Computed example of a mutant assay.
Amino acid sequence: MAPSADPVVAQETKKTPLQLISQGACLPGIPKHPSFAAQRQWMLEKMALAFRVFARKGYTDGMAGHISIRDPENPHTFWTNPLAVHFGMLKASDMILVNYEGMPVGGNMSRPANAAGFLIHSAVHQARPDVIAACHTHSVHGMAWSAFGRPLEMLTQDIAYLYGDAQAVYKDFGGVVLTQEEGDKIGAALGPRGKGMILQNHGLITVGSTVDEACFLMTLMELGCQCQLLAEAAAANGIPKVYIPDESAKYTFENSSDPETLYWEGQPDLEYEAYMCKGEHQS
């Protein structure tokens, strides 16, 4: 039977990206919880797991690096990690709740938050009300590629998840972020639809509607930076790069980079961390 020409019927039968990737019964959507308290605890546990993913993958760098999640009940506040605690040790109860003025207003008060992290994340959350979670790391390949001040090229299927204005570059490095002006400039550079950004001479930032999404995009960007550096090295020896056609990159982005699919992309690493730490992240 030929496809229906009726646009209403066509719209009803169009599959979502998550349905397209699921052969058989579709994976469920992003979980919802009956109360703010339950939603908050779930988010904080996922946040702790995301830090442990970053630790296992080697994204640690002294006191640098942070994740933030917007509080589900009070969206003008966000949770972040305590200063000078290794990513691989973090638990849900370790996180600090801060407001847009930088004042701790809940959670763990035993240590301060990272001042540079606060300035970056508060600017991102204020500039982008749709952003629930944001990650920033000083990963090795991310820092190396950031030295070029260039976006990642459409060289692999994974990087097509950041096609077009989903990827940004912040080129105005002003030193360690210790002023609101610098934080605001970073927040503005991400743009209204940015999912990942390269901070020139600094590192990477990713955002998402869940911490699962932002965590996965960080691992995707770091691997993308590694692939780009390897491709650049080969190209320097005379091997030409082959780029993904624009139409194919756009198609991949539109059918792979929605919040539900990116949430599920993050689950293998997060569930592995939960298994490896035997639930320690929940306390």
Rank of each mutant, 00 (worst) to 15 (best):
residue 205 I to T: 00
residue 228 Q to A: 13
residue 54 F to M: 15
residue 221 M to N: 02
residue 247 E to P: 01
residue 250 K to N: 04
residue 158 D to C: 07
residue 265 E to F: 10
residue 161 Y to S: 14
residue 228 Q to G: 06
residue 10 A to E: 13
residue 229 L to F: 10
residue 182 E to G: 06
residue 117 G to R: 01
residue 220 L to F: 11
residue 172 D to S: 12
residue 59 Y to A: 03
residue 132 I to R: 07
residue 179 T to R: 11
residue 217 L to A: 04
residue 4 S to I: 07
residue 277 C to H: 09
residue 200 Q to K: 14
residue 197 M to H: 04
residue 80 T to E: 05
residue 163 Y to V: 03
residue 223 L to Y: 12
residue 115 A to V: 11
residue 193 R to Q: 12
residue 37 A to R: 12
residue 114 N to H: 13
residue 53 V to H: 05
residue 116 A to K: 00
residue 35 S to Y: 06
residue 232 E to C: 07
residue 241 K to A: 14
residue 159 I to V: 15
residue 220 L to M: 15
residue 45 E to T: 05
residue 1 M to Q: 10
residue 154 M to V: 04
residue 256 S to G: 13
residue 39 Q to N: 09
residue 261 T to P: 02
residue 251 Y to Q: 11
residue 30 I to N: 05
residue 262 L to R: 03
residue 201 N to Q: 11
residue 180 Q to P: 00
residue 253 F to H: 13
residue 271 E to C: 08
residue 244 I to T: 14
residue 193 R to T: 14
residue 262 L to I: 08
residue 58 G to V: 05
residue 119 L to E: 04
residue 56 R to Y: 07
residue 125 H to F: 07
residue 253 F to A: 09
residue 163 Y to K: 03
residue 282 Q to D: 00
residue 53 V to S: 00
residue 109 M to E: 05
residue 19 Q to F: 07
residue 149 G to D: 11
residue 252 T to G: 07
residue 128 R to C: 06
residue 157 Q to E: 14
residue 59 Y to C: 04
residue 87 F to T: 07
residue 130 D to Y: 07
residue 61 D to R: 03
residue 65 G to W: 07
residue 139 S to G: 12
residue 173 F to N: 15
residue 62 G to N: 09
residue 276 M to V: 10
residue 35 S to E: 01
residue 204 L to C: 06
residue 186 I to D: 02
residue 92 A to T: 00
residue 282 Q to I: 05
residue 277 C to P: 01
residue 167 Q to K: 05
residue 86 H to R: 09
residue 65 G to Y: 07
residue 145 W to Y: 14
residue 137 T to C: 10
residue 116 A to G: 15
residue 204 L to G: 00
residue 253 F to M: 09
residue 60 T to I: 10
residue 97 L to V: 00
residue 79 W to A: 04
residue 156 T to W: 01
residue 245 P to D: 14
residue 122 S to R: 14
residue 18 L to Q: 04
residue 232 E to N: 13
residue 193 R to W: 08
residue 209 S to V: 12
residue 106 G to Y: 02
residue 3 P to W: 07
residue 186 I to H: 00
residue 73 E to S: 11
residue 91 K to H: 06
residue 173 F to A: 09
residue 84 A to M: 13
residue 150 R to M: 14
residue 104 P to M: 07
residue 135 C to P: 02
residue 80 T to W: 07
residue 216 F to Y: 15
residue 170 Y to P: 04
residue 51 F to L: 05
residue 95 M to E: 03
residue 72 P to N: 12
residue 29 G to D: 15
residue 1 M to R: 12
residue 12 E to D: 10
residue 116 A to W: 03
residue 69 I to A: 08
residue 110 S to W: 03
residue 110 S to K: 13
residue 130 D to G: 04
residue 252 T to K: 03
residue 257 S to Q: 06
residue 161 Y to T: 12
residue 157 Q to N: 10
residue 50 A to W: 00
residue 119 L to Y: 04
residue 5 A to K: 12
residue 144 A to C: 08
residue 254 E to D: 12
residue 228 Q to H: 14
residue 203 G to L: 02
residue 8 V to D: 14
residue 121 H to W: 00
residue 32 K to F: 05
residue 214 A to T: 06
residue 118 F to L: 02
residue 229 L to T: 09
residue 71 D to W: 05
residue 255 N to W: 09
residue 57 K to S: 01
